[in-house]
Nucleic acid binder design. Structure first.
Length: 591
RNA sequence: CGGGGAGUGGCGCAGCUUGGUAGCGCGCAUGGUUUGGGACCAUGAGGCCCCGGGUUCAAGUCCCGGCUCCCCGACCA
């Protein structure tokens, strides 16, 4: 069958022989629909928090998902390899990540005391491979990928396979002569990613994202939109702008502020504002709009040396991801009230005016306008007529504001939407972060030695499986897209009469010989149990054989995703079922 | 790591307030009756009530400590 993944040569399975069972009730551990269904249908079993067994049905799907990934990665020049789960520490020390990454990476010593770790991703090992095998620009570009189990000791696993600690991931790495070549290649990966997700029945949107621990200069996420998601995306319904909230921008338009109406303001003026320790209270009290006020917070960068004083327009919120990025640190932490006290500051009355010893970071929203209200750095007092640049200087001017629903789109100005989603895959333009630090150089045409320019592209296999089920289901159970269904056909017999049994066995035989992927419910169960299990397990085509169907002339055929059914004579069953499967595949055909 | 919740046969839960023989539904086993939407009858098996300490004549229940798991947040793919 075209485009059809094989499952190790096993086409048919009797339910009386199949390992696993279905659960009638919702397991207490499951919150998300996909998680509940995967446990109830006997797809996965939890061994520990975030650590799961994949049972036979799930594993068949996993292999089909992987084959779709292979097909698409091969189509854009990928070559599959496999890299070790266990890495020696030294390559991670070379890249620096041994020191940057926290306890989410599992570290241990081997018997001779050598530092080792469980690779949570494979930039280091693939870069090591590249530096040992590549000498010349003539060998570039190339793309390697592998599909492998990874372990990250997540602070909080959730949603079954959505966020597991041990998970299967497809990771691809491309190596280029220069960044232009990477930029030419990058869109091909993005297209492949969309094709993979679409082939699996999971719609995704491509959004701008933070580079995170990978480093590099540009990154996208491929996100499945669902309320059960854990990422927040900022989307423009008008022009298609899409970004993770971590990096999303927006137009900081001003609406009738004091500053814009009064280009020239006098010296700052200290005013009494007893008890007015929030933007809302102080603005109400002084009768000014929050857009004419300055919000000030103190943060400590990771490592915690010099604190940062962060100023932003009063109506906006600080985006800690953006702040961390512009402070060139991995994360930031808000100062506690006790720490503020040590600096002689009071929460609610702070401002950058007249303070020293801080890295002052100001949001670019404050670059325009003047005559702001800001804290006086004294309890119960604020300052009026504060002019950024005149009354305080910032060490860094940057966009550190958090985009939110309703803010104007940075591209077209239309109000933005905020949606939840699950990140299925990501693509990074890494640049030379790893090749330069690990010495992966090549000789270019002009004789010069250059670091290879890299891209890396990850996609979670188990997470995609969870998304497939989250998206393709109803109140009765899973509705597998045929492309990734464990079996294509669910054959069930009702009743114990020899007539029915013989007919069902005959059909099963015929399907088996014809290599139709069929799950045969040959159990001695009541009709209700069999139908409900068939709905729960969700194979695309259901074939029912019973006294009633035989009286009506054959077997009943029903698509899981549709309501109606038809009776087909037994002689025509094989051909009809094959045609229906073909038609189902057509629905997921790409291009 | 902060906040909340839960650990009782395989699964889902009650019992704990007010200490006194460990229960229900589903599942499982055996026999029988059933078979188009989670059937019925009968019989039966299955428990370190998360762990450790304490109080008490007596602890699933009260007290102290710990572990595990789930949810929200932080963080992350």
């Amino acid at each position: 069958m075209p485009g059809q993944a094989s499952c190790g040569g096993t086409y048919a399975m009797r339910m009386t022989k199949a390992f696993g069972k279905t659960l009638r009730e919702k397991p207490s551990e499951a919150e998300m629909a996909s998680h509940e269904l995967m446990v109830r249908a006997g797809l996965i079993a939890k061994l520990a928090a975030g650590i799961y067994d994949y049972l036979p049905l799930a594993w068949r799907s996993v292999r089909k998902i992987e084959d779709i990934m292979r097909r698409e990665m091969d189509a854009i020049g990928g070559q599959e390899i496999n890299m070790p789960v266990v890495n020696p520490a030294d390559i991670w020390q070379e890249s620096g990540r041994w020191y940057d990454i926290g306890p989410e990476m599992v570290r241990f010593k081997d018997r001779s005391g050598r530092d080792m770790c469980l690779a949570m991703t494979h930039e280091e090992s693939v870069t090591d491979l590249a530096r040992r095998y590549v000498d010349s620009y003539r060998q570039l570009p190339f793309v390697l990928y592998h599909i492998q189990t990874k372990f990250r000791d997540e602070p909080r696993s959730r949603g079954g396979l959505v966020r597991a600690r041990e998970f299967i991931m497809k990771d691809a790495y491309s190596f280029h002569r220069d960044s232009e070549d990477l930029q030419r290649y990058y869109p091909h990966v993005c297209r492949a990613y969309e094709r993979i997700c679409n082939a699996c029945g999971v719609p995704v949107v491509k959004v701008l994202s933070d580079v995170g621990m990978m480093g590099g200069n540009m990154a996208h996420e491929f996100t499945y939109l669902t309320d059960a998601g854990e990422d927040t995306l900022i989307l423009c319904p008008e022009c298609g702008y899409a970004a993770n909230r971590e990096v999303a921008t927006f137009r900081k338009e001003r609406a009738g502020t004091v500053g814009s109406e009064l280009p020239k303001v006098g010296a700052t003026e200290k005013v009494s504002t007893p008890g007015k320790n929030t933007i809302e209270l102080v603005c109400d009290y002084l009768g000014v709009d929050p857009t004419a006020s300055i919000k000030t917070m103190i943060y400590f960068p990771q490592g915690g040396e010099k604190p940062a004083l962060v100023a932003i327009r009063g109506d906006l919120d600080i985006n800690e991801r953006k702040l961390a990025n512009c402070l060139k640190t991995s994360e930031v932490r808000l100062a506690t009230p006790e720490e503020l006290e040590k600096f002689g500051l009071v929460q609610g009355y702070m401002s950058p005016v007249g303070l020293e010893g801080f890295t002052v970071v100001a949001d670019d929203s404050l670059q325009e306008g003047s005559g702001y209200v800001a804290g006086a750095n004294e309890k119960d007092f604020h300052l009026k007529n504060v002019v950024p640049g005149r009354d305080f200087k910032a060490d860094v001017w940057a966009d550190i504001a958090s985009a939110r629903e309703g803010a104007p789109c940075p591209v077209c100005g239309h109000p933005l939407d905020a949606r939840r989603g699950i990140e299925v895959g990501n693509t990074f333009m890494l640049g030379t972060k790893y090749s330069a630090s690990m010495g992966a150089y090549f000789r270019d045409e002009d004789g010069s030695l250059k670091p290879m320019v890299m891209g890396c592209y990850g996609m979670g296999v188990g997470r995609l499986l969870a998304c497939i089920i989250q998206e393709n289901r109803d109140e009765k159970g899973i509705i597998w897209p045929v492309t990734v269904a464990p079996y294509h056909v669910h054959l069930l017999s009702l009743g114990t009469s020899a007539r029915v049994k013989d007919a069902a066995e005959g059909v099963y035989q015929r399907f088996n010989e014809g290599r139709v992927e069929v799950l045969y419910d040959d159990r001695d169960e009541s009709a209700g149990v069999k139908f409900n299990d068939a709905d729960l397990l969700g194979m695309p085509v259901r074939v029912t054989i019973s006294e009633r169907s035989l009286d009506r002339g054959g077997a009943e055929i029903k698509l899981r995703r549709e309501k109606g059914s038809t009776i087909v004579p037994l002689e025509e069953l094989y051909a009809t079922v094959n045609r229906m499967i073909q038609e189902e595949f057509e629905r997921y055909r790409q291009d």
